[in-house]
Design a protein around this nucleic acid. Structure first.
Lengths: 201, 201
DNA sequence: GCCTCCATGTAACACGTTACATGATTCG
DNA sequence: CGAATCATGTAACGTGTTACATGGAGGC
């Protein structure tokens, strides 16, 4: 039920419509829990049925009209409980590792290009994260910062924006930075040691 | 369709029944693409319908009797193509990062314990990987090794067991080691900088 | 009027998770 | 014979993915 809680978090930061949520996800929470608008609509409906959110009654309940959602006390309570609950990490599922494993058995030309392509993707993502860090947490030490990863800067309210919240958001961002850095290091190592049989040229 | 290809890889290394595959997954391929026996049975059925594998005709097609599967040429071709194909990395989905993000908004006592618990889990996984590396790739430099992560040592055949395959399997294992090491480092950093408001004691 | 964008949604499918069902074999 | 274990399988559900449908508003 992680998506529901991701939505509650985003809605607490700022009441929004479904599409607005989708766009905000794309540049913040979606970095570590992406979602399409279909998923979000589906989940908003369930959250409403559960009494965790409701539509702001600024009239207009028709199709094609914006519906602004807001978190209800029950939703906040649910999120608070979930944030502290125990939950095992998801098992790793990485197709690239799997493909290397397959290549060990059947070979695989073109793998070098694929590794380079992934390396470029991870470098781009890392740059994006670093830019956010520079913009929102400039001058902060590790584990301390302001903002969460580039979202709602325009909103300008920062109602939960005390130092602790700031530190937590920076910590999350540093998680993303560390992950991308790991993949870049691993891919670089992989490309150095790749058997000639799997090289492209 | 990664699971299907994971199964093809495992079956090429050694023809097996569904349950045998499940058990082998648990200590090798399952480290980066876990699967339950239900998933594996479902997928084996599809692979058989697609003509990628077939049941060895050592009689016994009844329920409750072992069915030994083997990869057909079409299955090997499919796997070879997949191993070289392009495929974007899956987006990250990490609930712990999400919960830290939620805690930045609604708080969350008990998070410290949860971080410590995850730290312990990742340390255990790292030790498991390192033990495998020590056992199967002892003395090898980075990116070169023998074995893939602890499986089928008993099989003793290693038909694809040339130096390249060995190196690839070691590379995959080093991926796992690197990932666990990253999480350990990040969790340690997180625990150091955790706001007092989120600590358990 | 038409096209584009905004916004909400439906439908169908793929895949992972969990619980349970059923037959065969072995061991006490 | 009963219980445990091996082995295969069904069923139901949650969630992620992809494609498409519908209506309103603004611009040309």
């Amino acid at each position: 039920m992680s998506l529901a809680h991701a939505i509650l978090t985003a809605l607490l930061e700022k009441p929004s419509s479904g599409l607005e949520l989708t766009r905000r996800f794309d540049k913040s929470i979606g970095y570590f829990w992406p979602a399409t608008h279909q998923q979000i609509y589906r989940e908003l409906k369930k959250l409403e049925e559960a009494g965790h959110v409701h539509v702001l009654p600024a009239r207009r309940p028709e199709r094609g009209q914006k519906k602004e959602y807001e978190v209800l006390p029950a939703g906040r309570a649910e999120l608070t409980a979930w944030a502290s609950a125990g939950q095992d990490p998801r098992p790793v599922r990485d197709a690239l590792l799997l493909r290397l494993r397959a290549a060990a058995v059947v070979g695989g030309h073109g793998l070098e290009d694929e590794l380079r392509r992934h390396l470029a993707l991870h470098r781009r993502q890392l740059e994006e994260y670093l830019a956010i860090e520079e913009r929102d947490f400039a001058g902060d030490g590790r584990g301390d910062g302001r903002g969460d990863g580039g979202e709602e800067r325009d909103a300008g309210e920062e109602r939960g924006g005390d130092a602790d919240a700031r530190r937590l958001r920076h910590l999350v961002l540093r998680g993303g930075i560390g992950l991308e850095s790991f993949w870049i290091a691993w891919l670089t190592e992989a490309l150095e040691g790749l058997p000639d049989a799997l090289r492209t040229a």
